[in-house]
């Protein structure tokens, strides 16, 4: 029963991942794609943490942490790249 519930959750998350990919492919602007990829990264973290339960291994704990960091850094870097010439940022020094 427990495993069935985990597999159902995995299926739901797969649908969610597919929707993210669909938006990343469709997205009219680059920003839409960034949003979709950011959300894809978050969903992937959840996906792996369910895998940890199913396979009963703690080996993926670091993978979860590093993927979380990479999803954040990646989307921030892409957004900053998009902003390039426009510098209205406050200077704090």
């Amino acid at each position: 029963m427990f495993e069935v519930i985990m597999i159902v959750a995995l299926l739901v998350l797969s649908v969610s991942l597919m929707l993210c990919i669909a938006r990343a492919l469709m997205g009219p602007t680059l920003s839409d794609r960034i949003v979709a990829l950011d959300s894809f990264g978050l969903n992937l973290i959840g996906f792996i943490s369910i895998f940890m339960i199913l396979q009963n291994t703690e080996a993926y704990a670091e993978v979860v942490l590093v993927l979380g960091i990479l999803a954040f850094v990646g989307s921030v870097a892409l957004a900053k790249f998009l902003e390039r010439g426009v510098v209205i940022d406050r200077d704090s020094h």
Binding site: V12, S39, L42
Partner: peptide
């Protein structure tokens, strides 16, 4: 958790 993730992706679409 998986339901909320699905809601998020549906919202994105």
């Amino acid at each position: 958790g998986s339901f909320l993730s699905l809601i998020g992706s549906l919202g994105i679409i």
